[in-house]
């Protein structure tokens, strides 16, 4: 077990180096640097002179060729220093840290809500498999699964931000209202709750459709097993068979799903956050790409890669724990 863990960690570290190297090469070869892009936006009178540009380039480490700059970055990383954001002038850790809260709020709430609804839905679909009500629910969920979240988000946006604009039902983009700092605590909670509503719906519905189909597929396999027939034969009730005998045995594939969802917890969603002006990780990613904020892109890439690898490792370990047939020795 320990040998296996060490091997996985070494391979993981190797993968991380490769990933960061590739991403570093890519972003440094994108046309434009943070300095030239800033210049284009401001008026010509603020144009940076050539000498000044060289000083700035040196200060930001942009004068070095990218492979050397990469090793500098790697060296700083070994000292746990991810550098400063070009755009905000603050340490990358702090810039990313600011976004953790909003992203986690949205992702945990939506994953929790999706499971809360998907488990009963999946069990219901299994128990009424093939009937007309189950078929219509399944088709509906399938349609939801195929509905791109950005399309749904924009339709909802139209209804709640525009059509209902003069009513009490109007919802606003962003995470908090303008007068948030002056609110009392309960008001603050309701304010965030209202702002959370639409992004949460968009985040949840696709997960819900996926999870419930996942549960149904696993349940379909489980209820064909012999132990289910045994349980029925000994007189266990329908619900008891469904929940205690069948559902409990479908929990193993859940573990893979858990591992896959780990990077999603902090990854945010670039498009949805963009649409709802949610101050999360996805928007930070998109903004730092458009502004060529190299240190932030690298920091986010590193974080997501670690989470992806950790998710895979976690899933493999949980497998060994929940399924005694699997060992790593």
């Amino acid at each position: 077990m320990v040998n296996y863990l060490i091997r996985r960690l070494i391979l993981g570290a190797l993968t991380l180096v490769l990933v960061t190297f590739i991403v570093f090469a890519l972003i440094r070869n994108m046309p434009g640097t943070p300095l030239t892009l800033n210049m284009g936006e401001s008026d010509p009178s603020k144009k940076i002179s050539k000498e000044h540009m060289e000083i700035l380039n040196r200060a930001y480490g942009l004068d070095k060729p990218w492979p050397i700059a990469y090793f500098h970055w790697l060296g700083n990383l070994a000292r746990l220093d991810l550098g400063d954001s070009f755009r905000e002038g603050k340490p990358v850790i702090g810039v990313i840290g600011e976004r953790v809260g909003p992203t986690l709020l949205l992702s945990t709430a939506s994953i929790f809500l999706a499971y809360l609804l998907a488990i009963p839905l999946g069990l219901y679909a299994t128990s009424r498999s093939g009937r007309i009500d189950e078929r219509s629910t399944s088709v509906f969920l399938y349609a939801l699964y195929s509905l791109p979240s950005y399309v749904a988000a924009m339709q909802l946006l139209y209804v709640f931000y525009y059509l209902l604009r003069a009513t009490a039902w109007q919802l606003k983009p962003g995470m908090v209202s303008d007068n948030y700092p002056t609110m009392s605590f309960p008001e603050k909670v309701t304010d965030i709750g209202w702002h959370l509503l639409l992004p949460l719906i968009c985040f949840t519905y696709a997960n819900l459709a996926y999870d419930s189909r996942f549960i149904k597929a696993n349940m379909e396999e489980a209820i064909r097993q012999d132990y289910i027939r045994t349980a029925r034969a000994k007189g266990a009730g329908r619900i008891r068979v469904l929940v205690l005998h069948a559902f409990r045995n479908t929990l193993i594939p859940f573990v893979t799903l858990l591992g896959l969802q780990l990077p999603g917890l902090l990854g945010g969603a670039i498009i949805l956050e963009q649409i709802f002006s949610w101050p999360g990780m996805g928007r930070l990613f998109f903004d730092s790409i458009t502004y060529r904020d190299y240190p932030v892109i690298m920091g986010l890439t590193l974080m997501l890669s670690i989470l992806t690898l950790a998710g895979q490792l976690l899933a493999d370990f949980l497998y060994a724990i929940v399924d005694p047939r699997i060992t790593y020795s």
Binding site: I22, V23, L26, N29, M30, I289, L300, T308
Partner: peptide
């Protein structure tokens, strides 16, 4: 290893960077 590396790189970053290049 290549597959693992590809799975770790955020897809949209990869796509946006490649398109920008």
């Amino acid at each position: 290893r290549m597959i693992e590396v590809m799975m770790c790189i955020p897809t949209l970053v990869l796509i946006l960077a490649l398109i920008a290049v």
